[in-house]
């Protein structure tokens, strides 16, 4: 049998995953519908969409951080931890296996570091603890690693700063400390949930640059969640666009930005103001209406109620992914029809 090169092996493969929220008083709500995502070592997949599209829920499902009302009725989350694969969707959220993955093999950084860093411990102690917990090294060794990590994430005077409490640091430094903590056990996958949204634009540029550089050094895969197309264009290798629980379009970032195929992706890109001279400025073309609540999602394509190109099958039938380029998929009836016509 021919050897498959390690790089081609996906670190994490989400297949056909759905997430349903149950509530005693109301009907179940399907927050994420049959999502397929693949993450490869050294590459960044950006999950982009507006608020309520299910991007954060997807990320939390990977770490099984959702609360009890969230069910994973279908699908697999296959994680390759080096010695074979494990289906995270089948693990119990608080099982030993899951706990050994969480924070060590897969770690996560959040929008607001203050909420995930303990305010009563120094950042150094918190990072030490992660290392000691997962790797069982002596506290002294752990501190050496911590200082090295803090240095790597660009915190100057790392040895002194390790003794600082989170509130003593600026937003940018706190996010750096958070990243250092996430990388403490050299995870195979880093999930970044809007890590730059709360930051100023100059700090955001620094953090994005840092993440890119750390990915080169550590070689981890990265799942980057954001609502900002500019940030996607900066950091992603691949992009998946979500709308109301559906991944409507996914593919190579250059490909998707060059020729977006799904009407939602197109509309999203037309909503972002571009830097133009006054003479070249065009009126923005926003998407009509507002995102319906997941309870009122159209039975067929989720975008039906706002799509300018809607036709017969859209309201009733959910479109299947259509391949519109190499590895470039979009869920739209229009594309399926064009493809059928081309084949005929």
């Amino acid at each position: 049998m021919p050897q498959i090169p390690m790089a081609a092996e996906p670190i994490l493969a989400i297949k056909n995953m759905s997430i349903t929220f149950t509530s005693p008083d109301e009907a179940d709500v399907e927050a994420v519908r049959q999502v397929d995502l693949t993450l490869t070592a050294g590459k960044t997949l950006a999950l982009v969409g507006e608020s309520g599209c299910g991007k954060s829920v997807t990320a939390r499902a990977i770490l099984r951080l959702l609360d009890k009302s969230a069910l994973l009725p279908s699908g697999e989350i296959l994680f390759n931890h080096g010695q074979g694969t494990v289906d995270i969707a089948r693990l119990k959220p608080d099982s030993l296996a899951m706990r050994s993955i969480r924070g060590a093999e897969i770690s996560m950084i959040f929008q607001e570091p203050m909420t995930s860093l303990s305010p009563v411990h120094t950042i150094g102690d918190q990072i030490d603890e992660v290392i000691v917990l997962h790797e069982g090294v002596s506290p002294k060794k752990a501190r050496e690693r911590t200082v090295h990590l803090l240095d790597q994430v660009g915190i100057s005077g790392a040895r002194e700063r390790a003794n600082a409490y989170p509130f003593e640091l600026s937003g940018g430094l706190r996010q750096r400390a958070m990243i250092a903590m996430a990388l403490a056990c050299t995870p195979k996958l880093l999930i970044a949930d809007e890590p730059t949204t709360a930051l100023d634009v100059t700090t955001q540029a620094q953090i994005l640059d840092l993440l890119r550089q750390l990915q080169d050094d550590f070689g981890m895969a990265m799942l980057f969640i954001t609502h900002d197309l500019g940030v996607v264009a900066e950091i992603a290798d691949e992009v998946a666009v979500m709308y109301l629980g559906d991944v409507v379009e996914q593919g190579d970032v250059y490909e998707v930005f060059r020729s977006p195929q799904h009407p939602y992706t197109q509309a999203l890109m037309n909503s972002v103001p571009h830097l133009r001279r006054k003479a070249d400025r065009q009126r923005l073309s926003p998407i009509k209406g507002t995102v319906p609540s997941p309870k009122d999602r159209p039975a067929g394509c989720a975008f039906t109620s706002r799509c300018p190109y809607v036709f017969e099958p859209c309201a009733g039938t959910r479109p299947a992914p259509t391949e519109v380029g190499a590895g470039h998929l979009a869920r739209c009836h229009l594309l399926a029809r064009t493809k059928m016509e081309a084949l005929a």
Binding site: V201, A205, L208, A233, E234
Partner: peptide
């Protein structure tokens, strides 16, 4: 200039290089 350079542009072909990454932090 720093602000403009830090602004992410929705076009992957115009990615920023390392040279334009802003320096330092806003002083307290």
């Amino acid at each position: 200039e720093m602000l403009l350079a830090a602004l992410p542009v929705a076009d992957p072909t115009r990615r920023k290089g390392r040279s334009t990454t802003p320096r330092g932090e806003i002083p307290y």
